[in-house]
Design a protein around this nucleic acid. Structure first.
Length: 562
DNA sequence: GCCGTTTTCGGCCCGACTGTTTTCAGTCG
């Protein structure tokens, strides 16, 4: 919800300003925590009667939130904001510049924003400041150029293959005993800040040297005995940790994060008179595997995707999250009939090779002119063609479907008589994706309630790092999806990952069904499935709540349920 | 600022690396 995001942004900004002003770190952490809680909240904060019932939000923050909801601003934030130059928040984004240095730059060198920082460097204004040597200024200048040229976190679909290829390269070295990708990639976050690799080896110097001399490196930040850090030409930062083999589990746990989960574990350790760090759990000196550490903390092993301090502490057993092997059907794919690059036969052959029992052909509907959407007469012929191929192929059921546009007013792009001829209907929003929350909710609600619709495809229409998409009232949509037994899609394409993790979790907990689809247009698109799986797992999804995990006949029954 | 089988005060996660110092502050994850 956008209100939640708006308020979260204010709390994040407040925290940064408090840092620059040198306030207590605990107060700052508490403020950041409020922002994080709001970011992860599915319900609109305005609909919650007493926000102090939410852990992390106390009286003081509650009154600030209330003030924002009533007046659209927070007076104490406005005061804070006026106490420092607004551009300093941007300066804080420069790597290597924290609150202390930023304050020093402001007070002693008149730096008020990115532009004046650049000027200060170029005119030598920083040269005589205390603890500001040549090397430090060089590093700031370099990091500044980086901020000026780029800003976004990279998509999981970009970062994961890069991480895999670097790790593969390092694994060729002699002496390697263990290796893993850690960090937010292992947790399956939709965007990645940097790549974390862990390796244990009998030849640490060779490993570090090779890593720091990999092809395509634009900068080496650190080249230590246990930590090396580089930036690739593409802008991604890659950190390598060189780990003692017998401490691999403790390191993997620590560097997988999230930070919040690690803090949670250390707090649990302290409450049991133990101490956890990146090397071991004391006093029992447990370090070899994650499982052993969790066990000693009296917790089940927690899957990386849910290590976010969003309630995993209460797990009595390891949650049975769905895996890629649970997927037995893909219910949203395109052929050459619209904008795909595969024939019906090709699509079915690939699906069969992946071990699926069912594949749905869901080409675009008539409004999607740019995607060669099918007019009714073409759709009728396409349905016949799909059924004909289905007759000729054994071991796979090919469904004649459509990805029907949900038009801005909530009506569908074909009339009901035509829709009734289809085996499966995925209804998706494609245009008018900047509607108000109210309009978007009405629009999607109409589709969910439509008796012929099986699945709502990429419900928000967002494109990661590019387009915000719709911001419907998700609580309302989920309730309707449960009532009408309409599945909400998890579009696995790494540009979309739509629904996103927190909404998947809310939907599954409310009893809604979800549908995991690749939206494949080309053969290689089927490989996007793993990003959808990671996202679903982040949403605590179990196979029992995903229609693509149903056995053949169960799915058939589900499709004709209405 | 938040929290509480240690409840209304006292505590809040932990260590590596860099650059600048000469014993450590700042930043990062």
């Amino acid at each position: 919800m956008s209100t939640n995001t708006d308020v979260a942004k204010i709390f994040n900004a407040m925290a940064t300003i408090l840092e620059i002003k040198g306030e207590s770190g605990f107060k700052i952490n508490a403020t950041v925590k409020v922002a994080r809680v709001l970011e992860n909240l599915v319900e609109d904060i305005a609909t919650i009667e007493d926000v102090t019932t939410i852990s992390g939000i106390g009286k003081s923050s509650a009154s600030k939130i209330k003030e924002f909801l009533e007046s659209g601003e927070i007076s104490s934030y406005e005061e804070l904001r006026q106490s420092i130059p607004p551009g300093l928040l941007e300066v804080m984004r420069v790597q290597g510049l924290g609150p202390k240095k930023v304050r020093q730059l402001w007070q002693e060198a008149d730096v008020v924003d990115i532009a004046s920082l650049r000027t200060a460097i170029d005119t030598g204004k920083l040269d005589n400041l205390p603890r500001m040597g040549k090397k430090t200024i060089e590093n700031i200048a370099d990091a500044l150029s980086f901020v000026e040229s780029t800003s976004n976190r990279e998509r999981l679909g970009i970062a994961l293959p890069i991480a895999e290829s670097i790790l593969e390269e390092l694994q060729k070295l002699p002496g390697i005993t263990h290796s893993a990708i850690a960090g937010s990639i292992r947790r399956g976050k939709e965007t990645i800040g940097d790549i974390d690799l862990l390796v244990s080896t009998t030849e640490p110097s060779l490993l570090a040297e090779t890593f720091c001399e990999l092809e395509g490196i634009s900068k080496v930040f650190a080249h230590g005995e246990t930590k090396c850090s580089i930036r690739l030409g593409s802008g991604m930062q890659v950190d390598l940790r060189i780990i003692d083999e017998e401490q691999f589990g403790a390191a993997l746990l620590y560097f997988t994060g999230s930070k919040e989960h690690c803090i949670l574990l250390r707090e649990i350790a302290i409450s049991q008179d133990k101490k956890l760090n990146e090397y071991r759990l004391e006093p029992a000196d447990i370090s070899a595997t994650e499982e052993a550490i969790y066990k000693d903390l009296q917790l089940p092993w927690i899957p990386p995707e849910i290590r976010e301090d969003r309630g995993e502490r209460a797990c009595k057993n390891t949650p049975n999250l769905l895996t890629i092997n649970d997927i037995k059907a893909d219910l949203h794919c395109h052929t050459t009939a619209s904008d795909g690059h595969m024939s019906i036969e090709e699509l079915a052959t690939i699906a069969k090779a992946r071990g699926y029992h069912t594949i749905a052909v869901t080409d675009h509907s008539q409004s999607q002119g740019q995607a060669n959407g099918l007019k009714p007469d073409r759709l009728l012929k396409h349905i016949d063609a799909i059924h004909a191929v289905n007759e000729t192929m054994d071991g796979i059921t090919i469904l004649a479907g459509s990805e029907v546009d949900i038009l801005p007013d909530g009506t569908l792009d074909y009339d009901d008589e035509l829709l009734a001829k289809l085996d499966i209907i995925v209804a998706s929003p494609h245009a008018a994706l900047s509607q108000s929350t109210e309009d978007a909710t009405k629009r999607l609600l109409a589709a969910i309630e439509h008796p012929l619709v099986h699945i709502i495809g990429h419900p928000t229409g967002r494109i990661i790092n590019k387009r915000k998409g719709l911001e419907p009232d998700m609580t309302t949509l989920i309730a309707a999806a449960v009532e009408h037994n309409t599945a909400l899609e998890i579009n696995a394409n790494s540009y979309r990952l739509d629904l996103r993790d927190i909404h998947i979790r809310a939907a599954a907990e409310a009893g809604a069904m979800l549908s995991m689809n690749t939206d494949s247009h080309r053969p290689e698109d089927f490989e996007q499935l793993r990003y959808g799986i990671l996202t679903a797992r982040r949403g605590w999804l179990e196979a029992s709540r995903c229609i693509n995990c149903m056995e053949h006949d169960v799915l058939q029954t589900w499709l004709v349920r209405n």
